[in-house]
């Protein structure tokens, strides 16, 4: 298993005071909280930070951990020394709310298994009706804009616990999830009864899948509308043109009106992320690109244009 440098993870010195450790933890926890951070590594970092703090905030765990000395590097292959036994201290730790899974193998080899969160939270509860239910699991599901546009089916693999006799083990299961047309980023799909199971046996908690959009090379998204920039030539912009434009559903024809300028916004109705009850549109922003004047003939053409159609786009600037 990999050695974890808990001091490095919290960015503190080996002789940091308990106050320093707490401050460093609090600051990093705010920064990497998976509900706050957009960093794709946030969930992992948050879990690591929580684990590091779990060890370093506790004087006994910290001094036990310090016994390994300071020659270990983060990620180095590690085996606990023979005769290591710290398991009597396992009662208290639990992983924090936003981190899905328990602690690392390294932690568990040293300090025993983390207990999954139970009913001790002052904010959430299990009333008599649902006391025998397991924990909810939440996960992010990254999809493409095309998948939202068309709707899709995705097979996801999910690690959740399962009761084996008197033990709770982890199993990996495969679920097929239907992604409806027009699902938006941040929306959740709730799969009832697909979460973890409680030791007391009984029903599983729920699975919440939160949708995240993969970044798209052409389109940006705002709610249901998608926007792209369409480069056009000066003559297309001036004279008007019929142009092929990409949409999430494939290319369509767009009529560019004569006299279009850079920044002009055209709308393709219904080409955004439409759902059963809501329509999303595609916006096309025109961007006029001018060809380079390289040959003499080309330079002459530009000069002729200047002569035939004198034009000052800066009249409003007062210069």
């Amino acid at each position: 298993m990999e050695y974890k440098d808990y001091y490095k993870i919290l960015g503190v010195a080996k002789d940091a005071s308990q106050e320093d450790i707490k401050r460093a933890y609090r600051k990093l926890a705010r920064k990497y909280h998976p509900d706050v951070s957009k960093d794709p590594e946030a969930e992992l970092r948050f879990k690591e930070i929580g684990e590091a703090y779990e060890v370093l905030k506790d004087a006994e765990k910290r001094s036990a951990y310090d016994q390994f000395g300071s020659n270990w590097r983060n990620g180095q292959d590690f085996k606990p020394p023979p005769g290591w036994d710290f398991r009597e201290f396992t009662g208290s730790h639990r992983s924090t709310g936003a981190s899905q899974h328990g602690f690392s193998d390294f932690f568990e080899a040293l300090f025993g298994q983390s207990r999954p969160r139970t009913t001790s939270s002052p904010f959430s509860f299990f009333d008599s009706e649902i006391i025998d239910r397991g924990r909810d699991i939440r996960a992010k599901l990254t999809i493409t804009l095309e998948e939202s546009f068309r709707g899709a089916r995705r097979t996801i693999s999910l690690a959740r616990n399962v009761v084996h006799g008197s033990m709770l083990n982890t199993e990996t299961t495969s679920l097929q999830v239907t992604i409806p047309q027009g699902i938006l980023e941040g929306q959740q799909i709730r799969l009832e009864g697909q979460g973890d199971v409680a030791m007391e046996a009984g029903r599983r908690g729920d699975l919440f899948l939160e949708i995240v959009f993969d970044s798209h090379p052409l389109f940006t998204v705002s709610q249901r509308d998608v926007t792209m920039t369409l480069p056009v030539t000066p003559w297309e912009a001036a004279l008007g043109a019929n142009l092929k434009v990409p949409t999430l559903g494939g290319p369509v024809d767009l009529k560019l009106p004569a006299g279009s300028q850079t920044g002009k916004k055209l709308r393709l109705k219904g080409k955004g992320l439409s759902s059963k009850n809501h329509t999303g549109d595609q916006y096309v922003i025109i961007s006029v690109h001018t060809p380079k004047a390289e040959t003499d003939r080309q330079k002459e053409l530009y000069k002729e244009m200047a002569k035939i159609m004198p034009f000052n786009p800066r009249t409003k600037l007062g210069v």
Partner: peptide, 14 residues
């Protein structure tokens, strides 16, 4: 084990 699941999308339809 492969299960087929539809799930409920938590949008403004519910």
């Amino acid at each position: 084990m492969k299960e087929k699941e539809t799930g409920v999308v938590l949008d403004d339809n519910v």
